[in-house]
Amino acid sequence: MSESGYAALAIGGSAGSLEVLCGILEGLVSPTRLAVVVCLHTASREIGELCTVLSRHSALPVIEAQESAAVAPNQVHVAGGGYHLLVERAATFALCAGPRIQYARPSIDVLFESMADTYRRRLAGMLLSGANGDGAAGLRAIHRLGGLTIVQSPETASAPEMPQAALKLFAPDRQNTPDQLIDAVRGISRLAR
C-alpha cells in the first residue's frame, strides 16, 4: 500500500513518544496538502511549551488546535490539555470538557474516532509509545473506515503498552520502527491530496 492520497494524519502518543514524534515531524515535507493533528497526554499548562519544542523539529507551523478553527493543511495542530479534541465533518475542531476517558483528557480515542468519521479512507493514523490503552479503539475506528493504520513497533517503544493494546484489538496495517515512521510521513506528506 503506497502513501498517496491522504488528507490528514492523526498521531497519538503518551509516555516515551515525544522523541519519536520529533523525528516524525522532521520527516514532514513542506509545503504539503496534509493536515497533521497530534494528541499527547499533556497537562494544560504545558501546551505552549510543547508547541515550542515541537516547532523546532517541524518545517510546518505547530499550533494549539483552537475551538472551531479549520483543520488546515500544511500545519501541525496539537491538542491542548484539559479538553477532549474532536474534528467535525466540516473539518473544524471542536472541544469537549467531558470526563477523562481511560484517565486521559485529551483522549486519543476521542480524536481518532471523530477524525475517522470525517476523513474515512483519506486518514492515516499513527499510534506511538505509551503506557496505557488509550488510542487502540480509535485506531481501530480509523481501520474500519478504510484509513491507514500504523503502530510504532512495541519493541522500539519505551512504553510498549499503547501499541500493544492496538495490536491486541485488531491487525493494524503496519508496525513501524521510528525510522520507518519517518519514511512513512515523508511519503504521506509529499503525496497528500
Binding site: 500500500m1 491522504y6 479512507r121 474500519r144 473506515l145 478504510g146 491507514l148
Partner: peptide, 14 residues
C-alpha cells in the same frame, strides 16, 4: 493509493 472503499463500513456510518 488509499485502500478501496468498504461499502459496508461507509453504509454503517451513514
Amino acid at each position: 493509493m488509499i485502500k478501496p472503499r468498504d461499502p459496508d463500513a461507509e453504509a454503517a456510518l451513514e
